[in-house]
């Protein structure tokens, strides 16, 4: 068990964490590169910068639009996001691990607030699952992935809370800790290859959407040619 924990904290953590960071960087670079290439080839080079920026900002801080339609669900979602980002980033135990490993540390949450945020995140997450299941429209739009993500994001929070706050036998403690770490690492690996990549892509997605409609000149011919349907009615 000890060796497993050491492995999960050491090499496995390095592997998954770097996959996450570089993977996100890769997605970002590839998308920007693609967008630039599309812009270079675009027939119509006029871009509605102002509109795109406003729309992007509106998506990043979605208070106005979100609360208009499903205020409760949106509030839960925002709380969930806050807990999801703040808790792991500013938890004392995590910072301690960083300091032991490479000697960097930063401000940490007080114990009480860390516990509070953890419980808040768990409740918000459960609320989001219920929200998805309850509304027929949302249920129809949801993929398996969407449920899976809510579920797997909650595992580290629940196990982390158990480890930090309850008196359990050392072997159970270690087992929960292992699940906590492994689930966290699974999340790391999946982030750059799934919808969670929106954490870095959000700011540029609006531009890419705008660009997508700027086809180069005579692109229709080329598409037809590629699909071997030249001269045929589309």
């Amino acid at each position: 068990m000890e060796t497993l924990l050491d492995f999960a904290r050491g090499p496995l953590f390095r592997l998954t964490f770097i996959i996450m960071i570089l993977g996100l960087l890769r997605v970002l670079i590839l998308d920007i590169y693609g967008a630039v290439e599309a812009y270079r080839r675009a027939g119509d080079k006029r871009l509605d910068w102002k509109n795109a920026i406003i729309k992007t900002l509106r998506w990043i801080f979605p208070f106005k639009s979100a609360f208009a339609q499903r205020p409760f669900y949106s509030a839960l979602s925002i709380l969930f996001h806050i807990g999801l980002i703040l808790t792991p980033l500013f938890l004392l135990a995590h910072i301690q691990l960083w300091e032991d490993g490479i000697g960097i540390s930063w401000w940490s949450l007080p114990h009480f607030w860390a516990d509070f945020l953890t419980i808040l995140t768990i409740i918000a997450g459960l609320g989001l699952i219920t929200g998805r299941l309850a509304s027929r429209g949302a249920r129809a739009l949801s993929r398996k992935q969407d449920y899976f993500w809510l579920f797997i994001l909650l595992i580290p929070f629940i196990t982390g809370y158990i480890c930090a706050n309850t008196a359990i036998s050392p072997s159970a403690y270690q087992a929960f800790m292992l699940i906590h770490i492994l689930a966290g690492e699974l999340i790391f690996v999946l982030i750059p290859f799934s919808k969670i990549a929106h954490c870095v892509l959000m700011p540029i997605s609006q531009f890419i959407i705008t660009l997508a409609w700027k086809f180069p000149a005579r692109v229709d011919d080329k598409i037809a040619e590629t699909l071997k349907k030249k001269g045929m009615p589309v």
Partner: peptide, 14 residues
């Protein structure tokens, strides 16, 4: 790029 990222991460893990 995928291969590169995976190899780099694997390297750090090793």
């Amino acid at each position: 790029s995928l291969v590169f990222v995976l190899a780099l991460a694997l390297g750090f893990a090793m």
